[in-house]
Simulated assay, not measured.
Amino acid sequence: MFFCYIFVVVSLINFLPDFHVSSCDHNCADKPRFTPSRLVVQFGKPTSALCSVCQPGCNVSLFNIESPIGSLAANGTEVTWTVNEMTEWIISPSCYYNNDTTDTNCCSVLPITVYKPPDNVSFSVHPDVPMSEGQQYTLQCEVRDVAPVKNLTVTFYRGQTALGEPKSSKRENDEPKPVSEVFTLNITSTKEDDGVQFWCEAKLELGAEGPQPPPVVESEKLTAAVLYKPHLEVSIPPDPIIIRKGNPLTLNCSSVGNPPPSYTWTPPSRITSPSNGSVFFINSITHEDEGLYTCYVSNEKGSISVQFDVTVQANNLILIIEGAYNLWDRIRLHTTHSSIPTAE
């Protein structure tokens, strides 16, 4: 009798995978419970779940898990469902039992999210030409073969600064299979963007049950080349430059620009050797060097000019000599005036 009972149970377990749930009550009082209650699994990877059919001591005549793939193993009123390789994009295993008191099975469904990280994430800028300061450009991030797209977040970066997260046009789409999509973001370039790396990343945010941290695929990084007109690197004194005679004079109009700027100086006409660099230098200045000096800075994107007003003063030694001479002259005149006879 004992061996007969074992034979009946084994025969029942072997039969159950071919059983199809025809009528299910998902609101029954003592529903089967899956552990975990939700699965997130990568396509092509293994997974498993345990179904506790009912409370210990319950009386059920028929129970199992119904699924198109996977193997089952029963232990008492618990059934373990195991998949060696997830090959379905849409799958919702159902755990059920029947206690002969009704024709309806008591059922629970295991929610499963099957995901796939992108095959590739590529980044580009349109139009594909060197940027110019103040112009608008479109950053483009192409994400290929990702699922599910509704869980996808794409972020554009300037260096390590996030620029924005454009929404997917397919985000409300419940398509579970892999799709490809192009995301775009418009920017206005500045001179500070020159030499900065731009890129994007695709992240699958699958909730607490998903992999932690979430799967992320980054694009290659593109270094921006932004053309911009010259900008001064140095502060220019607004007031005249006052310098002692004989001292060196240095005028600086160093600028940044892309392409690198060129420099032209137009000092007073009596100066016969103007500089063609960003710094103008006179080793020992004289009164003849007084005047306006203009620095012209230019590249193909524009030009600027800077003026320096230079005033030359006599040096201290000359001032002392001149002061002493004036004092002696006044003393001499006073002495001469005092020696004139007074008429009687």
Results as ranks from 00 to 15, higher is better:
5 Y>F: 10
6 I>A: 05
6 I>S: 05
11 S>T: 14
14 N>H: 11
17 P>L: 15
34 F>Y: 06
38 R>M: 03
42 Q>C: 02
43 F>P: 01
43 F>D: 01
45 K>W: 06
45 K>P: 00
46 P>A: 00
48 S>M: 09
65 I>Y: 05
66 E>N: 03
67 S>Y: 13
69 I>R: 04
74 A>E: 07
74 A>S: 12
75 N>L: 08
80 T>W: 11
81 W>R: 07
83 V>P: 00
86 M>L: 03
86 M>W: 13
87 T>R: 11
88 E>T: 05
90 I>N: 04
90 I>H: 05
95 C>I: 10
98 N>E: 06
98 N>C: 07
98 N>M: 08
104 T>P: 00
118 P>L: 02
119 D>G: 06
119 D>V: 05
121 V>R: 03
125 V>T: 12
128 D>E: 13
129 V>G: 01
132 S>H: 12
134 G>E: 02
142 E>K: 09
144 R>G: 00
151 N>F: 04
152 L>I: 13
156 F>R: 07
157 Y>V: 04
165 E>P: 00
166 P>S: 02
169 S>W: 14
172 E>G: 12
179 V>P: 07
183 F>S: 08
183 F>M: 06
184 T>D: 04
189 S>D: 09
192 E>M: 00
196 V>A: 02
200 C>K: 14
203 K>L: 08
214 P>F: 12
219 S>Q: 04
224 A>V: 07
229 K>W: 01
232 L>K: 11
233 E>Y: 03
233 E>V: 08
233 E>A: 11
233 E>I: 11
234 V>F: 10
234 V>M: 02
236 I>G: 00
242 I>W: 00
244 R>D: 12
245 K>I: 03
247 N>R: 11
247 N>P: 00
260 P>I: 00
260 P>T: 01
264 T>D: 02
265 W>F: 08
272 T>S: 14
284 S>F: 08
285 I>A: 04
286 T>G: 13
292 L>A: 03
300 E>Q: 14
306 V>W: 06
311 T>K: 15
316 N>C: 04
318 I>P: 02
318 I>G: 01
321 I>M: 01
323 G>N: 10
328 W>P: 07
331 I>W: 09
331 I>Y: 05
331 I>E: 00
333 L>G: 09
335 T>P: 00
338 S>W: 06
338 S>M: 08
338 S>T: 15
338 S>E: 03
339 S>H: 11
